[in-house]
Structures are given as C-alpha cells and as structure tokens.
C-alpha cells in the first residue's frame, strides 16, 4: 500500500517558516482533505512531497521513498499543482502527449483522460483559449495520466463551475474507492467535508488537526439552543441553576451554547418558564474550522509579542 509520509517536515523561506515541524500520514483508500487558510503552507507541503522544493529539515516520502528516486513517477504519483502549467500555444492533447511520452505512458491514455475530464471536444484547441475551469480539468487529466496509486491535487475545484464541482467530488470518491491514496488541498471547509473522509488541518505551517471528518464535526461543531420567553428572570434563574450560561441578544432572544434542545426544553418546562420559542441551532462546520484556525493565529501573535 502506498501512503504519503511527512515526518518532522520544516521549510523556511528566508526568515519565514512556511512549514513548521509537520508530521502526518496520508493513507490509501480514503480521501484526505488538506485544509488551511491561504498561506498556511499547503502548497509548500505538496511541493516538498514531490521533491520540487528542498526541505530545511525533515522528510516527505511516498510509499517509503523520496519522490525524486521514483522511476517513471507519473505512473505512481499524479499531481495537480498549477492550472497554468500548460503552455498556452500548445493544444491540450499535445500537452498531455508530451507528458505521457516522458514516462512511457501509451497515447491511448491521453484520449481516455481527455474523455474522463470532458475535454475531448476541445482537445485540439490551444490551451490559451481554455477557461480556468477547462485548464483545471486539463491539470487533473495530467495528474491521472499514469493511472497513479497516489493522487495529490492542490485546490482542484478552483475555477470549476457547479457541475464541475459535483464531478470532482464523484471523481475523488471513486479514486479512493479504488484503493488509491487521495490528498486534496482546499481552503474551504464545507466543500472539503463533502468529499473527504479524513482531515489534515494546517495553520501557519503547523499541524492543527489530523482527524477523521466525523470526529472533527463531533468534537468541534457545538450544539446551541435559542430561546424566546416572556419571563426573562425565571429563564435566567432556571438556566443558572443547571449551570448553563444564557446570553441575551438585541432582538430579545436568548441563546445557550454547548447545550442540546432536549435538555434545555425539559429543564425549562420543569421550572415552569413560559416559552415562546425553542430552537436547536447547529454551529456550522465552517465556523468550527474558522475557530480552529483563528485560535492558532492568536496564539502565534501572542507568542511573538512575548
């Protein structure tokens, strides 16, 4: 089985530490989402894994070997890094053919991948006439050209239309179901949660989370209850007696964090508090992710000030 192993990986650009002692594994058979705000070091990590950048310290290996030592690497690992990598004056098909030739991949794979990515009709047009979404599809076709066991995609849904986004979701799920190692970066949490099984979250080059998506949601998305009442004193008293903190909003509604509507409803009814409205609210996944990355930002700022 082929996994991506990142061990104590650090990359400095001058004084800036883009990747900071990162350790994680990307395992086959599932889609691993690689999340982090812009500039968190996702692309740098991917370049390090592909041997394009040299780490300051630490290692990144694919199937236990550094990428640069692989023979015909496109047959083992496929990557999409920049959608602009194809020369504008070349046709999409020629771009893929040149790439295939370098790794002795038969030309029939080129046409298969053009078909798979929906580019067959524009294959003989020059790349400069392509839209961003079409270039992105061409980049994905290039990544899958060698039928690789390991797929690394940097922001693959950039520039794709809604139909394209649904297509890529299906594609990623399919690749993982075939037992491949699929590693996909994004800065959008909800989008990533729609296709990923596992999450690796990065903030300022550091590992913030390495967890299954379900656990992430369970641990970080906190339930919240919203209440409207005609007797605020009784409400406050009843909630305080059970150790709940209620916050009053400008519109007269109250909200209780980290609470389930079943518990709050029961205790308020037992206390005889008149209820006008009782609503269960789930904090969004996006919010949980923002909280995680924001706390990292604060942490970094405060340590720098010390």
């Amino acid at each position: 089985m082929t996994s991506i192993d990142v061990q104590d990986l650090t990359k400095e650009f001058g004084a800036r530490r883009a990747v900071d002692r990162l350790t994680f594994r990307v395992l086959p058979g599932r889609v691993t989402g690689f999340l982090g705000p812009n500039g968190a070091g996702k692309s740098t990590t991917m370049r390090l894994a592909l041997g394009l950048d040299r780490p300051t310290s630490g290692t990144a290996t694919i199937g236990g070997r550094p990428y640069a030592t692989l023979t015909d690497p496109l047959r083992r690992v496929g990557a999409l890094l920049d959608a602009g990598a194809a020369h504008g004056s070349r046709t999409g098909r020629d771009h893929l053919r040149a790439l295939a030739a370098s790794n002795r991949i038969p030309v029939c794979r080129v046409d298969e991948m053009l078909e798979e990515t929906g580019l067959t009709t524009v294959a003989r047009r020059r790349v400069k006439t392509y839209s961003l979404g079409m270039r992105q599809r061409l980049g994905i076709a290039a990544a899958l050209l060698g039928d690789p066991e390991v797929v690394l995609l940097d922001e693959p849904s950039n520039g794709l239309d809604p139909e394209g986004i649904i297509w890529i979701r299906g594609l990623l799920r399919r690749l993982a179901a075939q037992g491949r190692t699929v590693f996909v970066s994004s800065h959008l949490m909800t989008e990533t949660a729609s296709f990923a099984d596992h999450l690796v979250v990065l903030g300022r080059g550091r590992l913030l989370a390495d967890t299954p998506v379900r656990d992430f949601i369970h641990a970080r998305v906190q339930p919240r209850v919203r209440i409207r009442t005609s007797d605020t004193d009784a409400l406050e008293k009843a909630l305080a007696a059970h150790g709940h903190d209620a916050v009053e909003h400008a519109d007269g509604r109250w909200s209780v964090e980290h609470a389930h509507v079943e518990d709050i409803g029961r205790l308020l009814s037992a206390a005889g508090v008149p209820i006008l409205e009782l609503v269960a609210e789930e904090g969004t996944l996006e919010q949980a992710y923002l909280d995680l990355t924001a706390s990292e930002a604060e942490f970094t700022t405060s340590t720098q000030e010390v």
């Binding site: 370049r47 592909l50 041997g51 394009l52 990428y67 640069a68 030592t69 692989l70 690497p73 496109l74 690992v77 990557a79 890094l81 920049d82 602009g84 990598a85 194809a86 020369h87 790439l99 370098s102 790794n103 290039a142």
Partner: peptide, 18 residues
C-alpha cells in the same frame, strides 16, 4: 523560458525528477 512560466517547470520536474 516557457518552463519558467506558470509552474510549467514543476510539472516537467514531477515527470522527470532527476
């Protein structure tokens, strides 16, 4: 020069890493 535009070199070197 074409290799030094738009990340083309990264793609080329990922195909031929030596």
């Amino acid at each position: 020069a074409a290799e030094f535009r738009g990340g083309a070199l990264r793609l080329s070197l990922s195909a031929v890493p030596r």
